[in-house]
Simulated scan of single mutants.
Amino acid sequence: MEFIKGFTFGWDSQKGYFKTERAKESLRLMQERTASEYCIIALTALQETAHTTEIDYKGLHMVDDDELIEMIEYAKSLGLKVILKPTVNCKDGTWRAHINFFDTDVPCEPKWGDWFASYRDYQKHYARIAEKTACDMFIVGCEMVQTERKEAYWRQLIAEVRQEYQGLVTYNTDKYQEDNVTFWDALDLISSSGYYPINDWENQLDRIEAVIKKYDKPFFFAEAGCPSRSGSAMIPNDWALEGSVNLQEQADYYQVMFEQTKRRSWVGGFGLWDWQTYLHDESEVEQNDDYGVYGKPAEQIIKTYYQSR
């Protein structure tokens, strides 16, 4: 597997976003300013709560199929490789890792079987688009920690996705969960979200390396990044952490992350989090404390690193 020099793009895009020139210009700038070669297009379906079983992927909160296909084709016209990542969130704000049901079916209670049936329908819909547009990879889920113990359901889902899409298939587990997933053998790659404290990369890479050796699969960080906020380098996964804008702390985080992972030949790349569909104004970076790197010192660190690989 070639080294994945990637960025996540399109997160939280709604109907119509991908049709705009502003979105296309953002994608072009992502490639130009970070030397990215891969674009991970992340979609956001919704369910009401962590304990409801219907997944809505056809509402105004989603880009239409035709505009998604248009954006994939535009990305390819730029020379980018495309990874499609249909994800689900909860409308009430609960993180998707907490989607959960009783292990034993109970009358009048929501059931795993119903949720996975809806989730399979969602994934297979986009697997067909990934096949139609010749996407380079398909990610069947992201950070769905409580669902991961339902191994049989995941194996069935992966098998059905493969009937629709012939390319590489992976699952993006959450930080610290790489050694808890039991269905890696059914996938082509292992991937996870690498939001590890800046001073703990070596320990976590040691732990992940044991998983890679066990399954003998390629690995990459399908997500990784850090807000430009004081304190975030120690808790990069906490998007709600309160702190002052700190562009240097974000840059330092990327520098350390790249230095530590470069020593491990099995780390096969990144899908960094995240490049926004609608970019902030570059003149306002001193007031911007989110994960975006546009116009920030971290942007050049990423470009230099990707150009060196």
Rank of each mutant, 00 (worst) to 15 (best):
Q255A: 11
I139S: 10
F116S: 02
Q255G: 03
V106A: 02
G10P: 09
A224W: 00
E151I: 15
M257Y: 13
L27C: 12
F220Q: 04
G271Y: 00
Q276W: 04
C142H: 05
M234N: 14
N246T: 04
M144Y: 07
Q307W: 01
D200E: 13
I208Y: 07
N172Q: 09
E70H: 03
G295W: 13
K175R: 10
V245M: 06
M234A: 13
Q307L: 14
L78G: 05
C108K: 14
A130S: 10
S283D: 09
A35H: 15
H280N: 06
L29F: 06
I301A: 04
L46H: 05
S191K: 01
Y57F: 15
I69E: 14
A127I: 04
N288Y: 11
T87W: 07
R155P: 03
A233M: 02
N237M: 12
I212R: 14
E2D: 11
T20E: 15
F101R: 07
E48A: 14
I4Q: 05
E109F: 13
R155L: 05
S308L: 09
I302L: 13
R309P: 08
I41L: 13
H125Q: 03
P236C: 09
T49L: 15
V285E: 02
L60M: 07
K76Y: 00
Q166K: 05
Y57P: 01
I4C: 04
Y215S: 03
D206K: 03
F220W: 09
V140P: 01
Y254W: 14
Y38D: 11
K262F: 03
Y17D: 11
L46R: 06
D179K: 12
K5H: 02
T44S: 14
E151P: 06
R149Y: 15
H98C: 09
D238G: 02
D289T: 00
A224G: 02
W201P: 02
